[in-house]
């Protein structure tokens, strides 16, 4: 697929899941302070604007660090806590390029969170959820999945190295959902190594 034919979504997201998954009593309040600190210290990539508290929404966005070009969130969607990174306002990049950028931002944020005093959650790299939040560019269809998988495979090889990865369509049963790819990796590198691989 040439660059010209490659889908160019305007918004993609990557979610790394917490491992172990927290119990119902998880207190997300410390992440409010941590995210404000990220804004103050510019600890993660992007033009960061504000922090939104959505802990009142069941299985919702949790705590959201809102930016202009990227959002980071301690996300609870699907009943699974994780770090959700939403790359927004992508212009002129292929799906693979946009994903690379999102993975770099996301793994960088994981490193920053793991390096902080807030330790309620640890994020693993053995599974991630990728969503294409642009139904026009990459619809949730078999064709969309094939196109996205093809674009994703080289990037995964680069990021995960020798670790075996599998890609499945996680929203195949509901065409209304955004195209959602589940990536499972065996013996993956940690977030810091993933980031290094993507930057090398």
């Amino acid at each position: 697929m040439s660059q010209q034919d490659s889908p160019q979504p305007r918004r993609v997201s990557v979610k790394f899941f917490a491992n172990p998954q927290p119990g119902a009593a998880l207190d997300l309040a410390p992440y409010i302070g941590l995210f404000h600190q990220f804004i103050q210290e510019k600890s993660v990539e992007g033009l960061l604007i504000d922090v939104a508290d959505y802990t009142h929404v069941p299985d919702g966005p949790g705590i959201l660090l809102v930016g202009h070009d990227v959002d980071y969130g301690i996300d609870l969607a699907g009943g699974r806590a994780g770090l959700l990174t939403v790359r927004k306002r992508i212009e002129g990049s292929s799906f693979a390029e946009a994903l690379r950028d999102t993975l770099v931002k996301s793994t960088g944020a994981i490193a920053a969170i793991h390096g902080s005093d807030v330790d309620q959650l640890q994020f693993a790299t053995d599974a991630l959820e990728i969503q294409c939040r642009d139904r026009l560019a990459l619809p949730n269809t078999a064709g969309g999945f094939d196109a996205a998988s093809a674009a994703l495979a080289p990037l995964l090889a680069e990021a995960f190295g020798d670790a075996k990865t599998d890609i499945t369509n996680d929203a195949a049963d509901d065409a209304r959902s955004p195209l959602t790819l589940r990536v499972v990796a065996q013996s993956p590198p940690d977030a810091v190594a993933l980031l290094a691989n993507l930057r090398s």
């Binding site: 305007r10 918004r11 939104a52 959505y54 929404v57 919702g60 966005p61 959201l64 809102v66 959002d71 969607a77 939040r133 642009d134 139904r135 209304r176 955004p178």
Partner: peptide, 15 residues
């Protein structure tokens, strides 16, 4: 509702 759900996801914060 379905369209607004899509719009929230693609242009807003999924809320």
């Amino acid at each position: 509702l379905e369209v607004m759900a899509d719009l929230a996801e693609e242009y807003s914060d999924a809320i």
